[in-house]
Design a protein around this nucleic acid. Structure first.
Lengths: 231, 231
DNA sequence: AAAATAATATGATTCATATCATTTAATTTA
DNA sequence: TAAATTAAATGATATGAATCATATTATTTT
């Protein structure tokens, strides 16, 4: 029964953002009056850990990574695709400080919603608030899964896991083109780029995947799945 | 500025639970009518990952660990002391399934609040809801910190970190008696018990701490802090 | 109190994976 | 288009920490 709670998808939790459906027309109008849509180029920083947040981010297009950092190290918490809300934890910080950084993997667009307007709606509309809570909670559980994966699986399983997760949750296809360099994939998998390269080669040699210039194709999902569960 | 966001306290985030202050007398009464106070002995399971949750747990006394597990592995997400709410993520699961297990480190008491009553209040009272959200969010950030610590620090730093964290956040004193065996401490620090024993010996040899039969005393917090930041 | 079991301790060995070194290929810049 | 830089690939080496083996205490159980 509990076997399947943390199966593998450790990288992304694609939440369905339907909280806005619980707003009144007037409230929706209020949000629309207090948001801007912005285009971010590949590699740009949408939010910086430790800086004041004046908005909640609704990613409408693209792909981003969320990570925590100190002076010389970073840890990716999750990657997020379009139609997801980012930056909710800043709501609850006294000074609205972002607890993590957000950087794009490719050109992306985001609606930046005024944090005070958002906060007001959360405080006033409990249906909306409940849905936002749900998002926060599911996000937390997703990170628990990733944490578990990072602690308990070793490199092969972790990379298999991430490939499957990208396929299932982000690209929703067995074929996808990954806009990440080996180094970035390594960062995402929490290992060195050399290890990623070696493991990827092994996966290719064993006909688990095809890959050419970052065009991935998963050939044997069952076996990959098996490796993912630390086999 | 962002240097201090994830300083070291990776083990526990002692949230102040003041959400109940935002309930009306009637609502408080409703909770009191729908809760039971239960004593759990050391080592007992308060909640089991994958099982249906019929209550939200308010720990009123004791010390517990929250962990995720699969067939043969467990990962402690956090440890929690009295006056904290546990089990909120179950609110947002369709079937109210616990996403983690909860087990006591010592005799503990908890108020078990009917989950449907709790959910109703969350959905109706947006002030209350906002405070609950805050708790969920801060808990998530706490786990991010622990995740970061586990990924980026090595054994000495991680154990130093945990000792400091127990001292600062749980026992709030430089002297404390830890109700955990070496094995349990190892599980908490994410390493083997042999490693814990070796490192603890080193810390004692270097006069960073004193320890006798689990009676800990931190002698040199500065140096320990230094080790904690992966020095 | 004796026997059995579990907890603590310590050394030797193994292993996974990072780091380093070097090569080749692909981009970017001049 | 050449030179320079960056990315990808691969082998050799180093290392942190787990595992294994064994000893010594404690703590239960009988």
């Amino acid at each position: 029964m509990n076997k399947c709670l943390y199966p593998n998808s450790c990288t992304v939790y694609q939440t369905t953002v339907d909280c806005f459906n619980y707003l009144t027309p007037k409230e929706i109008q209020e949000i629309e009056n207090n948001q801007v849509e912005v285009l971010f180029k590949k590699g740009e920083t949408i939010a910086k850990q430790g800086s004041f947040s004046s908005y909640i981010i609704l990613l409408t297009e693209g792909l981003i990574k969320i990570y925590v950092e100190n002076v010389n190290e970073t840890l990716i918490l999750k990657i997020v695709a379009k139609d997801n809300i980012i930056g909710l934890p800043a709501l609850f910080d006294e000074k609205n400080v972002f607890p993590y950084s957000v950087v794009t993997y490719k050109n992306s667009t985001a609606k930046l919603i005024d944090i005070n307007v958002f906060k007001k709606l959360v405080k006033e509309n409990s249906k909306f608030s409940y849905e936002v809570m749900k998002i926060i909670s599911l996000n937390a559980i997703q990170v628990y899964g990733r944490f578990f994966c990072f602690e308990k699986k070793q490199s092969y399983g972790r990379l298999a896991d991430i490939i499957l997760c990208l396929s299932n949750n982000i690209f929703k296809s067995h074929k996808f083109t990954l806009p990440l360099s080996r180094k970035e994939l390594a960062e995402l998998a929490g290992m060195s780029s050399e290890s990623v390269i070696r493991i990827l080669k092994k996966f290719k040699d064993e006909d688990l995947i095809k890959e050419n210039c970052n065009a991935f194709e998963i050939i044997d999902p069952e076996r990959l799945e098996n490796i993912s569960r630390h086999g």
